[in-house]
Design a protein around this nucleic acid. Structure first.
Lengths: 218, 218
DNA sequence: GACAAATATGAATCGGTGTTCATTAAAATT
DNA sequence: AATTTTAATGAACACCGATTCATATTTGTC
């Protein structure tokens, strides 16, 4: 009779796969994707390099997977807020603040996702990531326009502007070394939000300065 | 007696150097920096690969030089406008429109400068490029705030927002293949400007829709 | 024209990483 | 226990473009 994959084996395989992904993510989290070399990933995961290729067809796919997992977490947070309670303006405000302040907290990872020089494959994932951000913003904008909270605009373009403005404004401060943000971060976030909210044409951009920071861990 | 470099030789050397830079720039202009391989540059410039290394210490330096030349041209255009006649609001408007519409015209080159995945060395040049954009915007903003045209803001952060918003909003459309812009470009530019001008808090953002396009070639 | 110095050449080399694969170990079936 | 199938190993390999360097050519002096 032929060989049959036992549950316990399947579990161990899944476990190894997780280990590999976690190892890769940790490397990325403190050295960027540049630090995610196959040898290092293998070492950190406690497997041989060849083993990596039993779980992922190539380095590119492994990295993409890491990118997707990390970015999916961020996007879920934003989507939850975007689809939650409150007026469009309130939700936009909350989404923007969350985006920015989470990026600041998870600096290195955020830098890797948003700004680190990466190769073609990852650049593609990054583009997807940006596009999704844009869609989240665009949805809220549409609702806000419908409800009369915002003036009429091309929501795609406006959303793209927001999706570009936030990371760029954060990048100087986001650079792996800079600790400049540890004190001024609130101010930076407020300033960015003011720009974006005014940009969409929100008429009373009174920013709630004392909103509690999002409590989900990075 | 010792050898002495003749004028005619000096001229020829300078000429070769130019040829190399031009060849590289042309490759970048229609294939991005990825297409600027030393072999290709040499072929296009009509010299041997080894010769390249008599003029530039490394590929990185050659590419940086190309980046600087191309970006300097763009920045000069913007600086000229920024330091020109008119109210801060008018100049900001003009700078933004020029930035965006020039990027659209020189699509491939703009994409290479602003968005193409590049290696560390070029990423550094790109960061410098962005920073300079920011400074140009920031200067105008400061003047506008002083003159009372804009509300008071942190000009560095606001400028960074603008410097990020424009390229990102253009990127989808800027991607090498997309011809989507050939028709809609005016609309896209207007929409981006509306966002940015509103973002800085310009109170009457009546955009001059019929401003002549800048006439300097890309 | 002869000699020396500078310049150009391009095939061969090098370097760094991702990937492979012959071999070994582990797990499942009879 | 023997046999077969799957999983893991890691040293060797492959790749690919940047870089080098021994050689040839051109230019400058006497």
């Amino acid at each position: 009779m032929a060989y049959r994959r036992t549950d316990s084996v399947a579990a161990r395989l899944a476990d190894t796969r997780r280990h590999i992904l976690n190892a890769a993510r940790e490397l990325v989290a403190d050295g960027g994707f540049a630090a995610a070399q196959m040898t290092e990933v293998a070492k950190k995961a406690g497997v041989a390099t060849g083993t990596l290729y039993r779980y992922f067809p190539s380095k590119e796919e492994l990295c993409r997977q890491v990118f997707r997992e990390v970015s999916a977490r961020e996007m879920n947070v934003l989507v939850t807020i975007a689809q939650g309670e409150g007026s469009a303006a309130e939700r936009l405000e909350s989404v923007l603040r969350t985006f920015a302040s989470r990026a600041i907290r998870g600096r290195r990872l955020a830098f890797a996702l948003l700004a680190e020089p990466v190769d073609l494959g990852l650049a593609e994932e990054r583009a997807r990531f940006r596009r999704t951000h844009g869609e989240i913003f665009a949805t809220i904008l549409e609702e806000g326009i419908t409800s009369g909270e915002f003036p009429s605009r091309d929501v795609r373009i406006t959303a793209a502007c927001i999706a570009g403005a936030i990371p760029t404004a954060l990048i100087g401060p986001l650079a792996p070394e800079s600790h400049e943000l540890d004190e001024k971060s609130d101010k930076v976030v407020d300033e960015i939000m003011q720009f974006c909210l005014a940009g969409v044409g929100l008429l009373q951009p009174r920013i709630k300065m004392k909103t509690a920071e999002p409590r989900i861990r990075a």
